[in-house]
Design a binder for these strands. Structure first.
Lengths: 332, 332
DNA sequence: CTGTTAGCGCATTCAC
DNA sequence: GTGAATGCGCTAACAG
């Protein structure tokens, strides 16, 4: 199988490579019949332009990078669906990187993208990330959109959900259900999302004239197994009547804790967790969730990125997508 | 910010680009001090070779493609972790493609990879795929490894789990638990995995001298919502005392059906499903699973691919990785 | 040990 | 409308 490149097409048609190139790119200054000849042969030989050659020549890659903390998480699995869909429409390839929640990995990946490998980056920060220099640095060279796990600064394009509002509303929801001792499972505390969710919770507590009790805020930025023990002990010691979990993973742990402590949900303990539909549908119907439209967040982030790449005359803006409080404990 | 390429380094050091290139590639024939000078400046300027230039020159991309049916599925989410880990170690980038179970998308993607964009492909077939010509065609040009959803033919490299055995054993497990009417939820029937799983079930039934009852085999290769109704009606009509689900998604549906029909699991109905740990941990502990080591399958598939790419003198072979039957209904 | 040069495949400028 | 020639950044063959 000989390789089929522009030269080959040109030779077989007794044309110059310049003409072939122009014909393939539908240049206005090409005779229709020439154009057709070229296209027909290209089809026949299954010609496909070499992306490295055109990338080198045009100084653009037609690739975008997506950096995720992890994928064993429904949110990101769904988000990448949205991203991939948009990228495919635009004729871009998607390069995927997993940080495993390590800031070091993240910085390494981000720094490695400055060489033209990709034209843009979609990133959701690792939970360890506290410093955004690597993002800013890369953003000088190519468009970067943050989503979900974003950084606060106004100089970056972010796509998020309404973390503060949804956390606030969820807390109020629990209070309206009669909860007086609402435990908060804290995570992502370095990140904007984590801070906003916590603030939503504490504000709701204060506005409802419930006592602010620091013992009810459990810092769960720990190892997976530790979290279980931590939460179990905290629940046993503090006897909460409601729990708000700031991330899905902890919501699940928390649900297991309730079972192991023989606390009936939602009778003895009401649980609300940030989560998403896929996961929630697997859980016992007594878990109320704050569900983020992960697919849409992915799509929206990708759309904004392509607005920049397409050099449209729109000024892209950060976007907040609202999540839904889905109640499943109506039996209480 | 000027661009930093080999030329730039050469100019600043008064060397030729050839020397710089060699120094960066640790050629044996370079003076240590020259090497050091070059590396120091490269570090200082954060030089990174342009992947398009080297790709073009060397006729290899240092990219691999991964084609998945979907990602809103724990198996594939975990598998890509394994793949990414190995690829990263080897200095390769991972391009991701999602077919959404469409054979047409799959063929399109596979055909688009013949232009040197990637050096190898890892693919898990879509449930629609019945014809493997596109795979064979691409495999003439670059290494292709199939995993999980593979094709039967011996001319391809496959990484799978022991579908027949695990299905057989799961059925025997149900029989030993006292089940006499075991329903089988059939899926992926075009694919090798689907056929083997079905065969494992039917053989176990026959070997145990239970009546082979076609009404107990429910063909679920349908739309998501249809499956629920289908299974619910089948369970109501056939009154099985055990169910073996050939895929995770149906196992979950089946679990919901049991709840909605007020059939206590595992008391009235024992359920075993192909699934994985992550998902299973979310479910009620009464679901017994056949758990595939998704992460390891991803890693193994990637390893075999890189054996080929590294041109090691080993002859790569297809590999079968054993899954585990994890029992959670010991209360019965 | 280092420099000069050709060429990977493509898009484009400049001639005609 | 078309062809010849150049260069994107890099590696390797060849020369010294």
């Amino acid at each position: 199988m000989e390789k089929v490149n522009i030269q080959r097409l040109a030779d077989e048609l007794n044309l110059s490579i310049a003409t072939v190139s122009r014909a393939l790119r539908d240049s206005y200054q090409i005779r229709p019949e020439t154009r057709k000849k070229v296209w027909d042969l290209a089809k026949k030989l299954n010609y496909q332009p070499n992306p490295f050659a055109s990338g080198l020549r045009e100084q653009k890659s037609k690739n975008i990078a997506v950096i995720f903390p992890e994928l064993a998480n429904n949110f990101f699995s769904l988000a990448i669906n949205g991203i991939e869909e948009i990228a495919r429409q635009k004729g871009y390839q998607v390069l995927i990187y997993l940080t495993h929640e390590s800031a070091e990995n993240e910085t390494g990946f981000v720094n490695s993208l400055a060489n033209g490998r990709v034209d843009g980056l979609l990133i959701s920060l690792s939970s360890e990330t506290g410093n955004y220099d690597h993002i800013r640095e890369l953003n000088k060279r190519l468009p970067v959109i943050l989503f979900d796990r974003v950084c606060e600064s106004a100089d970056m394009l972010n796509v998020t959900t309404d973390d503060y509002d949804s956390s606030y509303k969820a807390t109020i929801h629990l209070i309206e259900k009669g909860c007086k001792r609402i435990m908060y499972l804290l995570a992502l505390k370095n990140l904007s999302a984590g801070k906003l969710r916590l603030k939503g919770y504490t504000d709701a507590i204060i506005h409802s004239n419930l006592p602010a009790n620091e013992n009810l805020i459990i810092d769960c930025d720990k190892d997976e197994k530790e979290n279980y023990t931590l939460i179990k002990e905290a629940v046993a010691a503090q006897q909460p009547d409601g729990i708000l979990s700031s991330i899905e993973k902890l919501g699940i742990v928390c649900y297991h804790v309730a079972r192991d402590l023989q606390l009936s949900v939602p009778k003895h303990l009401k649980i609300v967790s940030f989560s998403n539909l896929e996961t929630a549908s697997l859980l016992n119907p007594s878990l109320t969730t704050i569900t983020q439209p992960a697919f849409d967040i992915g799509k929206e982030a990708a759309n904004i990125l392509f607005q920049l790449l397409d050099k449209k005359k729109v000024i892209p803006e950060s976007k907040i997508i609202t999540s839904m409080l889905i109640e499943r404990d109506s039996t209480s």
